[in-house]
Every structure is written in structure tokens, then in C-alpha cells.
Design a protein around this nucleic acid. Structure first.
Length: 548
DNA sequence: AACTGCGGGCCGG
DNA sequence: CCGGCCCGCAGTT
């Protein structure tokens, strides 16, 4: 056994974990554990944890602290040291009382570029200063990760002597914000063009079709009929990389919080009133970008001003408990992935909603021009009690569904930052209106995504290094129906099941859980059981080879 | 462009 | 010898 530095750093009262874990990361043989620990994003002091290899965050060696890789000349133990935090040289305070605690970039080059940059507080003329971590005998706090016994052993040494940096999500969202600001400029131009009743250059070729003709009975993403005014080929199918960044601990304005004069309720209303003076003869472009969503479930409306601001070209009124994990608050909505929102429409969760091309302040107009989107649960999705919950999760979490294959190729760089919802409605509106019962028995809305995406060679994500060569099944996040933490903080079902760490907001565990590795934390119980068992919805891809 | 992991090399204790 | 750190490389996001 290796001597540890516990006497130096341990607090007077040892935590339960410390009492439980007596090993040191450098021990030749680490003890087997009966139960795994909950993932800790902010290990603040000397601590040890053993994580299940199925915990995505643990596999990715995630930490709230900005940790950079450090070579310790031991391929079996990954060592990371803390980079500290960027603070304002003037120690300014934001309007909300928060301090500037920027996350240092892990990349050395990027981090060097951060130093000396102006304080992000517009009211401050300070500069960013790197507050280095010296919490471990004057050296940075170190984290050690070791994969052994099919588990992930974690040990932290030292106590951070600096504030917590913003989480990576915030850094990413700020970068995303910068990108979307540029897109916003383009959007403003487009708005002005449309308000002048001018078609955008890219739209001039588009055929104007009666609104009713944009509706067909084809399954989602598998339209083959010719009645619609557009076809689904790689050039027209909305495709985009997943730009969504989570805002789960957001302290800075997120892309979904951004305000814009273009997105004000007044400007939207004016814009929509202009655009939909004749909704019976929409161009497809109009239909795509000017759809209001009004899920009808319990007739309770939750107008959200900030949501309106987020989606300058869409006004969304959502309701509580309408389906899946539909957000009931503005915050929840903001924290939800736009992908997730869209999935709700066409996945197998039972749902019925109305879509109003133009309902801004015009109830009569709304009713006259509404159409319903109805989806039903597929029988392939688990039992009746949970199918509505899991069905939405399953489809939303499957990377190779909309998230990647269908959307990745969308060239939206010169378009709107918010086009995801309306773009997808381009696909969904004509399709989801049909009763899913009309689908062939051997297909389902989830499995019928047309595979227009280019087939690419499978990329190996597993290096052959000794450290990453784990003799355990490697679950893809999509395998267990989850999104990675930094990609989606809100994969909650209606009952609160979150993947992959499987928090369960209930006193009792989900009955689908076999009870293994259950823990209770107040009102939240967690389990590390593999929810993979729920993922029995079939996903099939029909590939036709043509030989010359 | 940035993140991540790996590994060579240098330096000081 | 160990630990911290720098650097470059390569694959991934």
C-alpha cells in the first residue's frame, strides 16, 4: 500500500466516502467495491470515489474544475491538474452579484490567448487574470483516474484555493452565442427581405403550393409522395450539427436567453401578420419558418417572454404535462435541447397538438388555420406505464436519429441560429399529421428516418492504449438512451428519469429498475442500473447496394 | 479551433 | 526516483 497524504489534507471529520475508501490510486491492487459512488462533478477536497464504468461523466473524466492532462509517466493512471480560474483584475461584480470566474481553456494555446483579455463585464475595464490553483502543497490540485476491475477509480489530492470556474457548458454556450450573433445579423436581413415581400435568393426557386398540399400521410422523414412542394434530398432536408449547449448551471446569458429587438413580441407579431396575410398560399419557405406551436393538452398556456425572444421567428406557448418531458417553466424550456423539443412531436409518445401558422394575438385566425399533429406510441416501446416517458427519451437520445444523420448536413451557416424548430417542422408538419396507426406494422416513426446522410466509415473511438482498454462493455450514450451531460442537461422523463446517471425524482425507484445500486438522496433516488433494458425500440436502417 | 489522451523530455527536490 | 511541467502529436469533438 502506498502512503497517502491524508493527514495533511483531510478535514477533521472524514466524509463517509473517505471512511469507506482506504485505497490509494497508486496501490498495486485496488479493492473491489460492492457499490458504486454517485458521480461528483466538484470534488472539492481529498476524496476517492469508485464509479460505474457506465457513468458517462466518469468515463470521460469530467470535472467541474478546469483540469488539464498531466503526464505522470504511468499509462495506467490518468493524472490531471487544476488550471485554476480566470478572475477579473478589478475584482468586479456583475449586476446579479456574481463574480467573474471564467473557465480556463484546457488547451495551452487557447489558454494563453485568454490571458489579458478584457473582463467580460461590459461595465468593467479590468482584464482577465489567471488565478492558478495551489491547493496541493503549493501545486495544483490533482485528479487521478484509473480504470480497473471494470470500475473507474477516482482520487483527488489537494483542496482548491480558488473559486469554482464556470462549468464548461457556459464556456461553450458563450462561444455558441458568439456564433449565433453572427447568424442573427443574417436573420435580420432575411426578416427585412421578407417583410418587404421579397423572396430570399435561395427561395426564389421554391414552388408556391397551397397549404393543404403540404400535408401528406407519409411517416416522419420518409415522405415519398410527390404532393408536397419539396422533396427530401440532401440539399433540402434540414441538416445541421447539434449546436445546442447546455445551460444547466448557467450564470451567463445562454443562446436561449438572448434578447433581440427582432425577437420582441411586437416585431414578431408584425412580421407574422405580414407574412401570413394569406395562409392558404404559403410558400414552403413561409411554412417552414413561420410556424407557431401550440401544444394542446390541458388548455393551460404558459407564455414565456424570453422564449419569444429566443425564437424570433417562432412563438411557442407550451403547457405543463403535455407529453414526454415537456418543460413547464421557462427555465426548463431553456435548458432543454431544441432537438429534444422537436423529437416530442414525432416520436412515439402519445401526443396531440395543434399547429398554427399564425396565431399571434389572433384567436380567430389561429383556429381557422390550425392543424393538428398527432403521434401515437408504438407498440415496440416497453410497457404502457412508461412508454410515453421512454419513447421520447429513446428517440431524442439516439444520436443517429435526427441529431446526427438527418440534421448534420444542414447548411445553416448563413441562416438563422434558431431555425431548428421550424426547420424540423418542415419535415414534421406534412408527416406527423397522419395517424401513426397508418404506418406499416414493421416500421415505426423512430425507425423510418430516411438515411440520406452519406455513409461514412466507422471511426474508432477506442484507442488501443492500455489506459482506455477496458475489459468492460462500452455503452454508447445512445445505447442507454441518454445524452452526455455537457450536451444535454435535461433528459428527464415526465417521471424525472435522467440519463445516464439515472437520477430518479421520486421516493421510490422506477419499477423498471431491478433495484441494484439504488441510493436515496433525500427525495431523489438514484440508480446505476442499466436502463438499456428499456431501449427495445427497434431501430433499423434499410441499405440498398447497387452493383454496377 | 478546442478538447483529450499519450508520451518524450527537462528540471528540481 | 519522483513529481511538476512543457511540449508536440494524433484523434476527437
Amino acid at each position: 500500500m502506498t502512503l497517502t497524504e491524508e493527514p495533511t489534507f483531510l478535514p477533521s471529520i472524514k466524509s463517509r466516502e473517505e471512511q469507506k475508501h482506504k485505497w490509494d490510486i497508486n496501490d498495486n491492487a485496488l479493492p473491489l467495491v460492492e457499490t458504486f459512488d454517485m458521480f461528483t462533478e466538484w470534488p472539492a477536497e481529498n476524496c476517492r470515489y469508485v464509479y460505474n464504468v457506465e457513468v458517462e461523466d466518469a468515463r470521460r473524466h469530467v470535472s467541474g474544475w478546469a483540469m488539464r492532462n498531466t503526464n505522470n509517466h504511468n499509462a495506467h493512471i490518468l493524472k490531471k491538474s487544476c488550471l485554476g480560474v480566470y478572475v477579473c483584475s478589478h475584482d468586479c461584480t456583475l449586476e446579479n452579484g456574481a463574480k467573474i470566474n471564467l473557465r480556463p481553456a484546457i488547451c495551452d494555446k487557447a489558454r494563453r490567448k485568454q490571458i489579458g483579455k478584457p473582463c467580460p463585464n461590459v461595465n468593467c475595464k479590468g482584464r482577465l487574470e489567471l488565478l492558478s490553483c495551489k491547493g496541493h502543497c503549493g501545486y495544483p490540485v490533482t485528479h487521478f483516474w484509473r480504470h480497473v476491475h471494470g470500475a473507474i477509480y477516482f482520487q483527488a489530492k489537494g483542496v482548491h484555493d480558488h473559486p469554482q470556474p464556470e462549468v464548461k457548458a457556459s464556456s461553450l454556450s458563450r462561444r455558441h452565442q458568439k456564433m449565433t450573433r453572427q447568424q442573427h445579423k443574417v436573420m435580420i436581413t432575411n426578416l427585412l427581405n421578407e417583410r418587404r415581400n421579397r423572396k430570399l435568393p435561395s427561395e426564389r426557386h421554391k414552388k408556391t403550393v397551397p397549404y393543404s398540399e403540404c400535408v401528406c400521410s407519409c411517416p416522419p422523414f420518409e415522405c415519398t409522395c410527390k404532393s408536397v412542394g419539396y422533396t427530401y434530398n440532401p440539399a433540402t432536408v434540414p441538416r445541421r450539427p447539434n449546436p445546442w449547449t447546455p445551460q444547466i448551471y448557467e450564470a451567463t446569458p445562454s443562446p436561449w436567453q438572448r434578447s433581440s429587438s427582432v425577437g420582441s413580441a411586437e416585431s414578431q407579431a408584425a412580421f407574422f401578420n405580414d407574412s401570413f396575410s394569406n395562409v392558404d398560399h404559403l410558400t414552403c419557405s413561409d411554412q417552414i419558418h413561420n410556424v407557431g406551436i401550440h401544444p394542446q393538452f390541458n388548455n393551460q398556456k404558459y407564455p414565456c417572454d424570453s422564449v419569444s425572444n429566443m425564437f424570433p421567428k417562432m412563438n411557442i406557448i407550451f403547457q405543463q404535462n403535455n407529453f414526454g418531458n415537456t418543460p413547464s417553466t421557462d427555465d426548463t424550456y431553456r435548458n432543454s435541447s431544441p432537438n429534444l423539443r422537436v423529437y416530442k412531436v414525432h416520436d412515439c409518445a402519445p401526443d396531440e397538438r395543434s399547429v398554427y401558422p399564425n396565431y399571434f394575438g389572433d384567436e380567430q385566425h389561429k383556429i381557422e388555420n390550425s392543424m393538428k399533429i398527432k403521434s401515437e406510441l408504438r407498440d415496440s416501446c416497453v410497457d404502457m406505464d412508461t412508454k410515453d416517458n421512454f419513447s421520447s427519451i429513446l428517440s431524442s437520445s439516439t444520436d443517429d436519429f435526427c441529431g446526427d444523420d438527418i440534421l448534420n448536413g444542414l447548411d445553416y451557416s448563413g441562416s438563422y441560429g434558431d431555425i431548428l424548430d421550424p426547420d424540423l417542422f418542415q419535415s414534421l408538419i406534412p408527416r406527423c399529421m397522419s395517424d401513426s396507426a397508418t404506418y406499416p406494422m414493421n416500421t415505426s416513426p423512430q425507425t423510418t428516418t430516411p438515411q440520406y446522410a452519406e455513409l461514412k466509415p466507422i471511426r474508432s473511438r477506442q484507442r488501443q492504449g492500455s489506459f482506455t482498454n477496458i475489459n468492460q462493455p462500452q455503452f454508447k450514450s445512445s445505447d442507454i438512451g441518454c445524452k452526455r451531460r455537457n450536451e444535454d442537461p435535461s433528459p428527464f422523463t415526465l417521471d424525472g428519469i435522467q440519463m445516464p446517471t439515472s437520477f430518479y425524482r421520486s421516493i421510490d425507484p422506477p419499477k423498471q429498475c431491478d433495484g441494484s445500486q439504488m441510493r436515496h438522496h433525500g427525495e431523489v433516488c438514484s440508480c446505476n442500473c442499466a436502463l438499456k433494458q428499456y431501449c427495445n425500440c427497434n431501430h433499423s436502417i434499410n441499405i440498398t447496394f447497387t452493383y454496377k
